[in-house]
Simulated assay, not measured.
Amino acid sequence: MDAAVESTAESGSVLGKTRLILEAFGLDDEDLGLSELARRTGLAKASVHRLSQELVRWGFLERRHGKYRLGMRLFEIGQRVPRQRILRDLARPFMEDLLQATGQTVHLAVADGLEVLYLEKVSGHRQVSRPSRVAGRMPLHCTATGKALLAFGPGGLFEEVVAAPLARTTPRTTVAPGLLEQELKRARDLGYAVEYEQARIGYMSVAVPLAGATGATVAALSVTGPVAPARTERFAGLLNTAGRQVTGLLSVRDV
C-alpha cells in the first residue's frame, strides 16, 4: 500500500479520524472551533463534533467557550513516555549547570523522522525572538542538534534527509547536500556540531551527541545564543564535559 492510499485508509478509521483531530492543534493554538477543526482535518463537521465530544469525556480535549483545546490527560500520558522521561531526568541537572555557566539557552533534542524534536529546554529570563519550545520541531539539517544527530547517528539518516530538497529556514541555511556533508564531516572531526544563523538570524548553536547503552547516538545537547564565534570553543568544551557525564549515566539505562 503506497503512502497516499495508506493515509486515506487510516483517516477513514475511527482511530485515524481521532488522530487527525488531535494533530490539528499546533504549538500556537490554544482553542479551535468546530469549523476550524473540520477544515484542518478534512472531516465532516458531524464526525468532528461526535469524536470531539468523546475526546472531551476521556480528557484528551477540553471545551471552553464553545471551542476545543488539548486536554491535561494527554500531558499526563506524555510524561510517561520512557525515552523522554529518562533522557530529560538524567540531562536536566547538567542543562541547568550549562545555563549557569553560559547564560544561554540549553536544549535537549532527539531525531524524530527528519526533524529535531525538543524534549527539554532551560533558559534565563532573556528569551530569543521566536523562541523554541519543548515538543517543538525543526528540520535536522539547519540546527546544531540536528547536525550532531546526523553526524553521529546512523548513516542512512543523512540519505533520507537529502533525498528531498532541503528547506531554507534562513538565508544562511545550508541547502546543498554536498556542503551539508562537509559540515557533518567537520563535526565528526571536532566532536561537536555548529551552526551560525542557519536556524535563526542573529543566533548560533553548538551541540554534542549523547550516546546510550549500546554506544549509539540517542540525543543531542546544545547551547544557543547570540552569534559570537569566539565563544564556540568554550561552549563546545562545556558541552563535551556535560555530554560525557550524561552519556555515562545513559550507558546503564535502556533508552
Rank of each mutant, 00 (worst) to 15 (best):
F94L: 03
Q127D: 05
L117T: 09
R172T: 06
T214F: 08
A151L: 09
R83P: 00
S205H: 05
L98C: 10
E54I: 08
K17E: 04
G66W: 11
E62F: 05
S251H: 07
G16W: 04
L61Q: 06
M72V: 11
Q84R: 14
E120Q: 15
G202A: 05
D254R: 14
M72N: 09
E30G: 15
K185A: 14
Y192L: 09
V128G: 10
N240Q: 14
A91Y: 03
A101I: 01
C142N: 15
L74V: 01
N240W: 00
A242C: 00
V5P: 00
R234T: 11
F60L: 12
D97H: 10
T170N: 04
S35K: 13
V161R: 12
A228P: 00
V227I: 03
G225W: 03
V116L: 09
T173D: 03
L55P: 05
T224F: 10
A151K: 10
M1Y: 02
A111W: 03
L190C: 13
G42V: 06
G202P: 08
R63Q: 14
F158H: 12
G215T: 04
G12H: 13
E120M: 06
L157V: 05
E62R: 13
R200L: 06
L210G: 14
V252A: 15
G66R: 11
R39G: 02
E6R: 15
L15V: 03
G78A: 13
R92Y: 03
Y203S: 08
A151I: 04
P139I: 04
R92M: 10
D2Y: 00
G103V: 04
A148F: 08
R186W: 06
L249E: 06
E10S: 04
V252I: 15
F158P: 07
D97E: 12
P177C: 13
R85Y: 06
T224E: 11
Y118L: 15
R83L: 01
A199Q: 12
A163L: 02
V223D: 01
S35M: 03
E6C: 07
A9Y: 01
E6N: 07
L238G: 12
Y118I: 08
P131C: 02
L32K: 12
L119N: 01
K67D: 09
A176Q: 11
R73L: 08
S35D: 15
E6T: 09
R168Q: 05
L150T: 03
S47G: 10
A46V: 13
V175A: 14
V208F: 03
H107I: 08
L221C: 07
I77S: 10
F60D: 15
E181W: 04
D29A: 09
H49R: 15
K147L: 04
S123M: 10
V194K: 06
L22N: 02
G33P: 02
P82Q: 09
V122K: 09
S132C: 02
R69S: 14
S222N: 12
P131Q: 00
V5C: 07
L22G: 13
T169Y: 06
L157N: 08
A211M: 14
H65F: 10
V161F: 13
R253C: 13
Q198P: 00
M204G: 12
P139R: 10
D29L: 02
S52A: 15
Q53G: 07
T232C: 11
E36V: 04
A4L: 08
L20S: 14
W58R: 15
I21M: 03
L99Q: 04
R126Y: 05
R64F: 06
P154T: 01
R64Q: 10
